[in-house]
Computed example of a mutant assay.
Amino acid sequence: MKRSDMLAHVGSMQQAAYVRPIEYQEGRTHGLKAVEVKNGPLRFMSMADKALDVALFEYRGENLTFLSKPGLNGRNQFDTNGQEALRSIMGGLFFTCGFENICGPYTTPEGSRYPAGDYPMHGRIRTTPAEHVSSDAYWDGDDYVLEVSGEMREAELFGENMVLRRRIRSVYGRPSITVEDEVANESFREEPLMWMYHCNFGWPLLAEGAQVVIPSRGATPRDETTAADTTPWNEIGAPEANKPESVYIHELAADADGGSFAGIVNRELGLGVVIDFNVADFPHFMEWKSMGSGDYVVGLEPSNSKVYGRGWHEERGNLHTLAAQSCERKTVTFTVLDGAEAIDALLARRDALLA
């Protein structure tokens, strides 16, 4: 709809779309600052106190993401305390992992060429509060743009000085959000830069009969537990009490420009979500499949590092690093698929990449 037509139909654009800073008031969320964004039937929450990561993500009132047992959390003592991170990891549409470490906790061994350090599960950036937070809603021609931005600093005296500058953008009438990130190394030494988006999907999108859609040329089990899981990696069954998690490392097909994707679709619900990214930015991709009752979630994880963590890369001499006074940029887009035709188009896109 053109700008003039839209304005003719509403008194305020907030009837249809808005960007609204909020603060939670109770329980573990007390004091948690966030930005609520409504784009027609799409609504999401960017957490200003947690790296501007997106927690809530819903469409036409249906939740599309996973929220772990602790629920929404403000900043707390579990945030960066080794394995205790499991008490603060909430899930949500995505949380940012890195930058000194991803996956399990890690302590630099004696004799390493890297500085000594203790690195918590999935790193520290996901719990870093944003500064210079800005939220805006404005017309750009006939596009009504909804935008959130800010920066997060992961730094230590005598240590790293990494700055994440993030912009999240959505356009009214389009059921998608685009995350544009830049990480700058503002220190004067080379720094490790492990970088993963942990994208988490839950009920009711994730339900028996749902399907994981990935243009995968091959899926390698992370461990013996995963190898013993006889359920195909792309099929979703009902929750099972105490069923262990499975993790797969995928080799993705991509188009001529490096574009690839991963998604979840539910034909019965008539909805899906697809994540678009470039394999040059994310040469590694993991699928976390947890079908355990109460921990019922599928994580889709574009990454520049493997799921085995920092120590694995250090041992092989291929830990990704960022030169002093330089930066890297990455972009991911999340799009809601509405209806059978959109779901069919995603499957056809997968098949075309694998042909």
Rank of each mutant, 00 (worst) to 15 (best):
Q77G: 08
E58A: 03
G91P: 02
A130K: 01
L56G: 07
P115R: 04
Y59A: 03
A130I: 02
Q77L: 04
N73G: 05
E110G: 09
R124S: 11
G61M: 03
G91D: 03
L64V: 02
I125C: 02
M90A: 13
A16E: 10
G98L: 01
R87A: 14
R60Q: 09
S112I: 15
P41K: 08
L72W: 05
G104I: 10
W139A: 08
D118V: 13
E23K: 14
R87P: 08
L72N: 06
R60E: 09
N63S: 11
E110F: 11
C103G: 08
E58G: 00
R60P: 04
V35H: 05
G27N: 14
I89F: 04
G123W: 04
P41C: 04
S135W: 13
A17K: 03
M90F: 08
G82C: 07
K50C: 07
A130C: 06
A85F: 14
N63P: 05
I125T: 01
A55C: 11
A16Y: 06
E62I: 01
L32T: 11
T96M: 11
P105I: 10
D79N: 08
P21M: 01
N101A: 06
R60Y: 13
N101P: 06
K38F: 12
S112C: 10
A130V: 09
F95G: 09
R43D: 12
K50D: 05
P115G: 15
G91S: 03
Y138P: 04
R87T: 05
C103W: 14
M45E: 11
Y24V: 03
E131M: 15
I102G: 02
L72E: 08
Y18N: 12
I89V: 14
Y106V: 04
G31I: 05
L32W: 01
E36W: 06
H132S: 07
P105Q: 04
V54W: 01
H30E: 12
F78H: 09
I102W: 06
N73R: 06
T96L: 08
T108S: 15
G92Q: 00
V54T: 02
D49C: 11
N73S: 05
G91Q: 00
P115S: 07
F99W: 02
F66T: 03
Y24D: 14
T96G: 13
D136N: 14
L86Q: 15
F95D: 06
L93P: 00
F95C: 09
Y24F: 05
F99V: 02
C97M: 05
D49Y: 03
M47D: 09
K38M: 12
L52S: 00
N73D: 12
N39L: 02
T128K: 01
Y18Q: 13
P41R: 06
R43N: 08
G27H: 10
F99M: 05
E23L: 13
A34P: 01
K38Q: 08
N101V: 11
S112V: 04
G61Y: 00
R75P: 15
K38A: 07
G27L: 14
E58T: 02
T127D: 13
T29G: 07
S134L: 12
R60G: 12
R60S: 07
C103F: 11
N101H: 07
G104V: 13
T127L: 12
P70R: 01
T29C: 15
Q83E: 11
Q14D: 11
E110A: 05
P109L: 14
V37F: 00
R75D: 06
G92E: 01
